[in-house]
Design a protein around this nucleic acid. Structure first.
Lengths: 338, 338
DNA sequence: TTGAAAGCGCTAACAT
DNA sequence: ATGTTAGCGCTTTCAA
């Protein structure tokens, strides 16, 4: 079943069928209807390979996700796959380790799969114009924006939360509950990535609250890994450091931290309150329920696709969208015992 | 940069280049080397669309995953995407709700994307030959096998654990710890899917241990949903039912169950032991650590791709692989208090 | 408003 | 062992 069959069936030329297929204007309503009906009746599906070949463009949108162990990204991917498919495109998913270079991965993918555009998840914030020249298609950074790089605002799009501000909000939530000695758990304070920003937000908020930053209270694992966080928090406790609250830069890390606290005989929130940022579904079921700032994953993913598609189709220009988190109060934060 | 450029550059014909590209035998070693070098030097990447068009086959392998909320499937997808890519194919991922029909989804996808084959995750077990006629490409069922259907063994491949036996093993683990009143948590006992098999295994093992099945101890939610499980287990407790242990058919559901038990003031494992099947990373960090039978996700995914590719390339035939789980002892199972 | 025809880059049958 | 060539299904000028 090809375009020829439809043409023959309708007694028109293939060009006419092609025009109908591509919504070109110069077709009379009657013929258009005729062709559309034939397409339906004969269950015709256009051959994407032929389309790609002649127009030298595929229907592929790349999703390059950095950080395979981050369940928050999994939930984004779920929505992305649906949205991309619903708009008639094909998602090409590439998951890479945190150590890998997502721009290079995207550039290779772009060539291999003739990508129309790329959505980055969990990437770095320090892209340079120079580096990005490898990429010749539009891209959207989802979950982050290019805080540390020199990209022009109109050279890319992004959907993200205000990571610094939100981390600050988390800190203030703890301070409001009487906490002053607040530990922080993160993978890397200088990764030019989410961790760095949230760490900065933590420090700034402390300062704003008149609390000195104490490096002894920072659990830095170097790796986005629950095991490392568990070990790190155990070591923190064993070091004798005093703290009554803890901010983890993500739910997954918070869960590992809670485990460490509990295993060391500290009660959450009795001895230590815990707050995080992400809002995983599973965080509703930790013991105690994790208090966390929920990122609107569904909206973020949907908006990213929306942006990229409008860029691809030439109906929109680069934008930067900031979304709000929602505090989901759990049982992991309590007023400090006097 | 096309095959023509390479041909011109090497002063050979396009067919020769094509032969080199496709590893055809009839090329002299010298010419082969010459062409390969040109390909490298000129950074030539074959145009997949053209390839697909002429050979009317793409490089696409479909992955149809049923049950978007199941984190175990996410971990499989991660490995699948890597393996598929490494073998030079493209993964087309389609995630559908548990209520949807994966065969129909796969059939549509096959036509749309010219799939070479399909890997099903978390599907039903009751496919009929008739139903599968929609699918004209080979497929592999990953995580399950066609227990309830009438498929011929040589008509499809599968990679799975012995769900009934493993559920039985979990039950016996509890019985070995002195438990006789064992509750079970599942979504649907008649879904022709993993839940049904594990439930059967639960009942059979009880029987084998001389314990009567008590329907009052079965928490059936009708839906793979942590919220529903939480509510169900709360209702079970509130009903006054007596039990000292609980088997959840998956880690995620176990986590919700533990939460419910804890929130109702029952201690795990003091008042109730909990065991599950899956082996999520996050289950290491629940409080208490979940005792669970780990499925070898990495192996299962890798083997599925291996099977499908050998089917696609005609170097293998349909096989059914059974893999072993590994008991990962946590702190959620204890000897029954006398 | 419609049709005819020239390729897009590649594979494979056929010829040499 | 290598080259020539006819399409694969489609989009897109160009002509009518």
């Amino acid at each position: 079943m090809t375009i020829k069959d439809i043409a023959a069936y309708c007694d028109v030329s293939v060009s006419t069928v092609s025009r109908v297929l591509n919504d070109h204007p110069d077709v009379s309503p009657q013929v258009r209807e005729l062709v559309n009906e034939a397409i339906r009746k004969l269950h015709y599906v256009p051959n994407n390979s032929a389309r790609s070949l002649v127009s030298s463009r595929s229907t592929a949108i790349g999703v390059v996700s950095r950080g395979v162990d981050n369940p928050f990204l999994s939930s984004l991917i779920r929505v992305l796959s649906r949205e991309i498919h619903d708009r008639g495109y094909t998602m090409v998913l590439h998951q890479i380790p945190t150590q890998a270079d997502e721009v290079q991965a995207a550039a290779m993918l772009e060539r291999e799969k003739k990508l129309l555009g790329v959505i980055f998840l969990g990437g770095r914030f320090n892209y340079t114009e120079d580096e990005l020249r490898q990429l010749t298609v539009p891209f959207v950074c989802c979950t982050y924006t290019n805080t540390f790089g020199d990209l022009r605002e109109d050279a890319y799009s992004s959907v993200s939360i205000r990571d610094e501000a939100e981390a600050g909000r988390a800190v203030r939530h703890l301070v409001d509950h009487g906490h002053r000695r607040i530990a922080v758990v993160l993978d890397d304070p200088a990764d030019n990535s989410i961790g760095q920003l949230r760490f900065q937000g933590y420090r700034q908020a402390l300062e704003a609250c008149g609390i000195a930053y104490d490096p002894a209270l920072a659990v830095i694992t170097g790796d986005y890994d629950m095991g490392a966080v568990y070990a790190g928090v155990c070591a923190l406790i064993d070091s004798g450091a005093e703290f009554t609250a803890l901010l983890a830069i993500s739910d997954a890390l918070a869960i590992a931290a809670i485990k460490a606290l509990t295993d060391r005989g500290l009660s959450v929130p009795g001895d230590c309150s815990v707050i995080a940022i992400d809002g995983l579904e599973i965080s509703r079921y930790t013991v105690p329920t994790l208090t966390t700032l929920c990122q609107p994953a569904e909206d973020m993913a949907r908006e990213s696709v929306e942006m990229l598609v409008s860029l691809i189709e030439g109906t929109g220009s680069h934008r930067h969208m900031l979304v709000q988190t929602t505090l989901r109060p759990g049982g992991s934060v309590a007023r400090r015992a006097e």
